[in-house]
């Protein structure tokens, strides 16, 4: 099976004095569903940041898709990010834009024609059950609804990889379930690789998944 992520002797650090992830080796198959767990401050979000190039490897090699992230150029990083969908715990929606425009963002970045992008946004709003909120701004929605907008944005351009950082951390049960269903759907129907950083793996998941646990700067697969 093709590997979408390959990490060799990967070390990550915010400063030269403190290493968060220390010389880890792992790989992730294309089309798999992966959970990364660990205690608070263990480095799971740091690892996720490194996967979309927000934190460059301090040591070793990290290849995502075909892009080596150590010393990656800005244009290559942009190329990689255009094929990734990211979901954050704090949603990271542009507050001064309508939810439609927020969802449209990756489509416009990927060069979609406006009319095609508009159609796609309509479909996605229905998909995340927010078509009745079209035209509203993020701050006019509840936290669960904002996360569904963020989810729609992550799915908009049919990415090969979805990275989610505690996507249900602040949500009620209904919204959480909806987010898990959307992630499951992307994985099972579109064969999108999904990597989720979380404290709790949901019990009623309908997909096969891999589970990595981070502890003391090391990562190991939980069987």
């Amino acid at each position: 099976m093709d590997k979408v992520i390959i990490a060799k002797d990967l070390s990550l650090a915010y400063s030269s004095s403190e290493t968060i992830i220390n010389k880890v080796n792992f790989s992730i198959d294309s089309g798999s569903f992966v959970f990364i767990t660990g205690a608070s401050g263990s480095g799971k979000s740091t690892l996720l940041k490194s996967l979309y190039g927000a934190l460059k490897p301090k040591h070793g090699s990290l290849v995502v898709g075909s892009v080596e992230l150590r010393g990656v150029s800005r244009s290559r990083l942009n190329f990689l990010r255009r094929h990734i969908g990211i979901v954050f715990q704090d949603y990271k929606l542009v507050k001064e834009w309508s939810i439609d425009k927020n969802i449209m963002l990756p489509l416009l970045i990927n060069g979609y024609v406006k009319s095609v992008a508009n159609n796609q946004v309509d479909k996605l709003l229905k998909h995340v059950r927010l078509n009745h909120q079209s035209g509203k701004f993020p701050l006019e929605l509840s936290g669960g609804e904002q996360q569904r907008v963020a989810m729609a944005r992550a799915l908009a351009h049919n990415p090969v990889l979805i990275l989610a950082d505690e996507p249900t951390g602040n949500l009620d049960e209904y919204s959480s379930q909806l987010i898990w269903n959307l992630l499951e759907g992307a994985n099972s129907q579109l064969n999108t690789t999904v990597i989720v950083v979380t404290h709790n793996i949901p019990k009623n998941l309908n997909v096969d998944y891999k589970h990595f646990h981070i502890e003391y700067g090391s990562i190991h697969e939980v069987c």
Binding site: Y52, L77, N78, R81, I86, V94, E96, L105, R153
Partner: peptide, 16 residues
């Protein structure tokens, strides 16, 4: 700043 960062996360080039 926030909007530019978010656009950057989705691979928008500097000009965009």
């Amino acid at each position: 700043n926030e909007r530019m960062s978010i656009m950057g996360l989705f691979g928008a080039a500097l000009w965009l």
